[in-house]
Simulated scan of single mutants.
Amino acid sequence: MNGLLITLIFTSFGISQGVMAQSRLLESVKRNSDEAKSICESFRDLNKKNISAGSQKSIQKISTQKNISEVDAEILSMYVRGLYCPETF
């Protein structure tokens, strides 16, 4: 019973840390609209080449530029597209 409780505590702590990190990432873009505009411009450039902003190539580029995981880069991509450049694909 105690082992299960300890496991649940550490699991919830790990999940909350991930959520907080993603929240900080999204908040940084929300507070800095120039950063979001820059990301949108790169999405538009990719779209001109018929490459989706959600493509693996795009996600890897964001991941490398921001020094974040590909999962976080994908979340950031969806967030930016949804709020700042929904016309991109």
Rank of each mutant, 00 (worst) to 15 (best):
V71L: 15
I75K: 12
G14F: 08
E27F: 05
K57Q: 15
L5Q: 15
A73L: 12
D45F: 06
S58M: 05
A36V: 04
Q65R: 13
N67F: 01
V71H: 01
L5T: 15
I39E: 02
F89M: 14
S69D: 06
Q60V: 04
A73M: 13
E41L: 07
Q60L: 11
L4P: 02
M1A: 12
S16P: 01
V80G: 03
M1T: 09
L4T: 11
N50D: 13
G54K: 03
K49D: 11
S69N: 04
T7C: 00
M78A: 10
D72I: 01
S33A: 04
I62Q: 04
L76K: 05
S55V: 02
F13D: 01
E87C: 01
R44V: 08
S16F: 04
E27D: 13
D72F: 11
T88L: 00
S58H: 09
I59G: 02
T7D: 10
V80T: 06
K66R: 11
F10N: 08
I59L: 06
V29R: 07
I75Y: 09
M1P: 05
V71T: 14
K61W: 12
M1V: 07
K37G: 01
I59W: 02
V29Y: 14
E70R: 13
V19E: 09
Q60E: 12
